[in-house]
């Protein structure tokens, strides 16, 4: 089938040899695009980012708590576990996640468990790579509980650090590509899973989490 490869590439090269008709695309510049001159504005002062992040994320029906330490984070998690009656919880194998979940009485499912066991969890607790103020998004990679750990349970809880806040999308992708090679899986998560496929009515928790909570540690 390398026939197809050669013939497609040759076809594309031949097609490009035909010059574009003058004037048709005069409005498209060849300049390097500057996303920041276009995207929604974000204040330059980093102290404003947590509030903006929180506001954007909660507008998408996520929850965001700023906590002073791991103990307070553990308290918030214990309360949610109680209110929602967690029986089983997926835990990423990571020190902060371990610390904030130490007192949980739910059954623990860890990374590498069979998918069915993970699917039966009521919540999943993971880290993240970055929080994006501009859109209220959370950047996760394969290092934050794998491809499924951040999407399978109905409630996804993220433990983050304030230092992980970045202002905008160009910075978020910068973080994602900081380690070369870029991980095999990266996702920018913006609010709980949603659909509007039936009569354009918004429904949360289409296939992924119905609830999304971020705990921001100092």
């Amino acid at each position: 089938m390398s026939d197809a490869r050669a013939s497609i590439l040759a076809g594309v090269r031949a097609a490009l040899a035909v010059p574009t008709e003058r004037g048709v695309h005069a409005d498209v510049e060849r300049l390097p695009p500057d996303a920041r001159a276009a995207l929604p504005p974000v204040p330059a002062d980093p102290s404003e980012w947590p509030a903006i992040f929180t506001q954007r994320m909660e507008a998408l029906r996520g929850r965001c708590y700023r906590v002073v330490d791991e103990e307070e984070a553990a308290g918030v998690i214990a309360r949610m576990a109680h209110e929602e009656g967690w029986n089983a919880v997926y835990l990423q194998d990571e020190p902060t996640v371990a610390a904030v979940s130490a007192d949980l009485r739910a059954r623990r499912v860890s990374a590498g468990a069979p998918a069915r066991e993970m699917a039966d969890c009521d919540a999943g607790i993971t880290t993240c790579r970055a929080l994006v103020a501009q859109t209220g998004s959370i950047l996760v990679t394969a290092a934050d509980g794998g491809r499924a750990g951040t999407v399978l349970a109905p409630h996804h809880v993220v433990v983050a650090r304030e230092s992980q806040l970045v202002p905008d999308l160009p910075d978020a992708w910068q973080v994602a590509s900081a380690g070369r090679p870029v991980p095999s899986f990266v996702s920018l998560v913006t609010g709980p899973s949603r659909t509007a496929d039936i009569e354009r009515t918004l429904v949360l928790g289409a296939h992924g989490p119905i609830r999304l909570t971020v705990l921001i540690l100092p």
């Binding site: 999308l169 870029v182 991980p183 899986f185 996702s187 920018l188 913006t190 899973s193």
Partner: peptide, 9 residues
């Protein structure tokens, strides 16, 4: 932004 913008490599 759409809810999930994911990369698979």
């Amino acid at each position: 932004l759409t809810c999930y913008n994911s990369l698979y490599g």
